[in-house]
Amino acid sequence: MEFSWVMYLFAVILLATGIKMLIMVDHQPDIANNPVLRFLKSHMRVTETLHGQAFTVRQVNQNTGKTVLFATPLLLCLILVEIADLVFAIDSVPAIFAITPDPFIVYTSNIFAILGLRALYFALAAMVHRFHYLKYALALVLIFIGAKIFLGDFMFDGKVPASISLAVTGGLLAAGIVFSLFKTRNKNSSN
């Protein structure tokens, strides 16, 4: 276990992400001031408008008068989506390692998670108004998994039993769903 310290680094990432999600649960991101977007705009030539489905277009540069390659806002959007996928993968790797050290399961679960992430997002985006408290439950799940990595070495002989992990995770998610449905039941019937 030469690199076992990496799990503690992952645990810190999970704990920080969970706490940030709890604190900023209703925070709407300011995409215009996103540091990645600002970096891309400062290092690439970007058109002001979309050009159909094109990621790049050739246009005359106003400064030089030469025709050069410009990125479109669609390319910037794609880069931001892919970076969000990468951030998701960074969070999910320690979560799966907290369950199993088997590399095959770790790789395949993360691949399937990334492949299904966008489809699941669009399915949940339509129902997000009904599951407002699920955000809190997901933040608590991240905090639980991060804490489990730290406490697993001190308790339970190095590994928290899977039954306890599944019970806590399932209980938190179920509580978030049930509480959300209970709190929004009147809003749905009045529409």
Rank of each mutant, 00 (worst) to 15 (best):
F154A: 08
G52V: 05
V93A: 14
T56W: 09
V160H: 03
N33K: 13
T67V: 11
T56P: 03
G170S: 05
A126D: 13
S42V: 01
N186Q: 09
N34W: 04
P73H: 05
Q53M: 07
T17F: 07
S190H: 14
A162N: 12
L166M: 10
L124M: 15
L117Y: 10
N34S: 12
I149R: 00
K135P: 07
A98N: 10
L117F: 13
M155P: 03
S109M: 04
A95T: 05
F156P: 04
V6Y: 08
F122I: 10
F88R: 09
T169A: 10
L124A: 04
I111W: 12
D153C: 00
T64A: 06
R45H: 13
Q62I: 07
F112H: 12
V6G: 08
K135Q: 10
L140D: 06
V106E: 12
Q28L: 10
I177R: 01
A162Q: 10
L14R: 02
K135L: 01
I13S: 08
V128G: 07
A174L: 06
Q59D: 15
Q59W: 00
L138Q: 11
L75F: 14
S92D: 07
L76S: 01
Y121Q: 08
R38T: 06
A95M: 14
K20G: 08
E82S: 05
N110R: 09
V12N: 07
H132T: 15
N188G: 01
